[in-house]
Write a protein that binds this DNA or RNA. Structure first.
Lengths: 249, 249
DNA sequence: TTCTTCGGTTGATCTGCATCAAGGCAGATC
DNA sequence: GATCTGCCTTGATGCAGATCAACCGAAGAA
């Protein structure tokens, strides 16, 4: 029954997860913690493995511990659109709904901390803070989705790529340290095709724009995936967003 | 202190609103109702008027009573993307945030039922069902936003138009009756430009595709705004979605 | 070793939608 | 009545990104 309580942010640190479950309450009383410990379990997935298919019965909710997962929608003729990128600490699943609305896929090796839905819902009823915390998180996700609508509807291919890189850089930078020179350095967790699915582009266009950003010195590439951002502001310039941040977390 | 309680759907009918506030609780105890009555007030806006600007201080949450409002994001160079369409009974505003994230505009004459944020938040804390109901609604909105991401990222102009018409037809049909012949008939609440902002298109393309759908007999047009859908299934065919519904509410 | 596969790059060409431009119609104002 | 303004339509043209296609290099597998 270890686990720290971060009262200020209403976040609960799971006993043996390396990261916080952002989903899970909240001014923790130790008996709530104990209940959480009892109903949780872990699942691992290999890179490329499907966690759940759209339409499948989904009797758990979960929080990403390590690795990256994606939410994707597919049209009958095969057109695909990614609608969510799940990084460590992100929450999946929907209390009150029994089937999955999207394909959930592990793009890297993935560990999730799961809670069976029924006990989790019971806990939500018993512990009002959990519903409030979930509401807060869902509103954040809604904001992010709407930001993404602007990207999909109105940004150019170059702006789309820059925006995606900026998001990943920012999320990643909050976990890791910067390189000695103050550069932001990270590994792309997505293939060119996955990037395309996220951005509403083709993989060829993604590849071309990556090359263009490299040629223009906005990013440096080592191999296919390792990205160096020498100047984050210069990258932000390319996103088309107002300079003052915009994208959340 | 009139107001019916619809316990099954956790919806509260406002005493003098003609419609339900979907936002507002929830296995109503009459003293909760009384509190709600005390903190609510009404505001009217004319068509075209801005309810609130992105970045402004927003010290209320609200529910649309009559009319239609939109949520819009604008880039520095003027590119605009609508990210939400608020029909009667939809909820605006975000407990726990003090500034508006989007421009909210009345596209028709609009009446909103408002609650000052602080008392509303207090009530949320005191009445757990409200948070749960809000969570439910927010998750629905998130699903709708993700559906829209698919539209913006992957659908053709024709599919986009058909999808928008299908959504409005469906929302509208649930309020009104069908015409004698079983057609769905409604008035477009948006200008061509607003449709374009919603769909990530230009107004010219919207106009052209509307003409094309008319030429192909998918819709009939009386004047610019009055739409007749002789065969809803035929319209759904054009959306690119799986036949079984897809779009929510 | 060679062959295959997977992820990625780059070139040539095509096309759907944007852009630029002209005009039409209905309702308001003078 | 004439004129204006807001909303819409239609045509001509341009271009960003899609599509089709060839090829590259690295990592396995035979």
């Amino acid at each position: 029954m270890a686990g720290n309580h971060d009262l200020s942010t209403l976040v609960h640190e799971c006993a043996d997860c390396p990261i916080r479950h952002r989903a899970v309450c909240a001014r923790c009383e130790s008996d709530e913690l104990a209940r959480l410990e009892q109903i949780k379990y872990y699942r691992s997935y290999q890179a490329g493995q499907t966690v759940i298919w759209s339409g499948d019965r989904m009797d758990f909710v979960a929080s990403v511990v390590t690795g990256i997962a994606t939410l994707t929608q597919t049209m009958e003729d095969g057109r695909r659109q990614m609608v969510g990128l799940l990084l460590p600490s992100d929450f999946v699943g929907r209390p009150g709904r029994t089937t999955a609305a999207y394909d959930v896929t592990a793009t890297t090796d993935l560990v999730m901390c799961c809670f069976r839905k029924k006990p989790f819902e019971d806990m939500m009823t018993a512990t009002p803070h959990i519903a409030q915390r979930l509401l807060e998180m869902t509103l954040d996700e809604l904001d992010a989705a709407r930001e993404w609508m602007l990207l999909l509807g109105r940004k150019t291919a170059r702006e789309k790529i820059a925006s995606l890189l900026a998001i990943i850089a920012r999320r990643d930078a909050s976990l890791k340290l910067r390189s000695a020179k103050g550069n932001i350095v990270f590994d792309l967790p997505l293939t060119r095709e996955e990037m395309a699915d996220y951005l509403g582009l083709t993989l060829e266009t993604v590849s071309r724009q990556m090359s263009a950003l490299k040629k223009d010195g906005v990013i440096e590439l080592e191999g296919k995936r390792h990205i160096i951002v020498p100047n984050f502001d210069a990258l932000m310039e390319e996103t088309g967003d107002d300079s003052d941040g915009g994208f959340l977390v």
